[in-house]
């Protein structure tokens, strides 16, 4: 991929021409299918990736196989960078493709080179991390402060308010994102439906009562 194409992505838009050239020379493109396990938690971290097209999901799994989805990322987002920055280069979380995707692969050695020789590359990554840190702090607060019912109401409102990300969430994925299991999500959706807060129409979950859902979303775990 040439440096001008890279510059179209927000993350790379502030990079100096020589940094873009170095990135273009060292990184290579790879196409992956939907459902591909790009990064497996606990294995040696060999590379980081930048999404050129498609969507990836980052998750962690406990010993019982229960999954917590940490984030979903689309074009322009870096993934598995933290794993390369840690002392022990072990994959910190798993990354799976939700759709066919094209990614830019940067090996650990090339990543080290870019960090060391191109400070603007480091600065761009720092800005990304600041935003992600804020989101993870919010997620940690939500998981500890609110009930599952509240977290589901919050999540439904968030999805509906962001039409670009409103499609493609299965009940399993919703459950993993809000820290519960599928059966609970199904039961709560039925309860919301019986309360007149939402309606179901085939693939659609239609939110009917913003204030009612907001009230549900504000209920603290006591």
């Amino acid at each position: 991929m040439d440096s001008q194409s890279l510059k179209k992505f927000k993350l790379f838009s502030t990079l100096q021409p020589d940094t873009l050239d170095a990135l273009a020379q060292r990184a290579f493109q790879r196409k992956i299918q939907a459902g591909h396990n790009l990064v497996i938690e606990g294995l040696a971290a060999e590379a980081c990736y930048f999404i050129l097209s498609g969507h990836l999901r980052v998750s962690r799994m406990n010993r019982d196989g229960r999954i917590q989805i940490l984030a979903r990322f689309g074009p322009g987002a870096p993934v598995n960078v933290i794993s390369l920055l840690k002392d022990k280069r072990i994959n910190h979380a798993s990354v799976e493709s939700l759709s066919p995707a094209t990614i830019l692969v940067i090996s650990a050695n090339d990543f080290d080179y870019l960090l060391k020789n191109h400070p603007d590359f480091s600065s761009a990554l720092l800005r990304v991390f600041a935003n992600r840190m804020a989101k993870l702090t919010d997620l940690a607060a939500d998981l500890s402060l609110y009930t599952v019912r509240s977290r589901l109401a919050q999540f439904l409102i968030k999805l509906a308010d962001q039409p670009g990300s409103a499609s493609g969430w299965t009940q399993d994925e919703i459950a993993a994102h809000i820290g519960t299991v599928r059966d609970v999500v199904g039961r709560l959706l039925r309860e919301f439906e019986s309360q007149g807060l939402i309606d179901r129409d085939h693939q659609k979950i239609i939110l009917l009562n913003r204030q009612g859902l907001k009230d549900e979303a504000q209920k603290y775990d006591v």
């Binding site: 409103a166 969430w169 299965t170 009940q171 399993d172 693939q203 659609k204 979950i205 939110l207």
Partner: peptide, 19 residues
């Protein structure tokens, strides 16, 4: 079908929207 599939090979993604 999605709930029953033991390998996650079936997905039924939902669209969330305001009425």
């Amino acid at each position: 079908c999605e709930a029953l599939c033991p390998t996650g090979a079936i997905r039924t993604p939902l669209i969330v929207t305001w009425g």
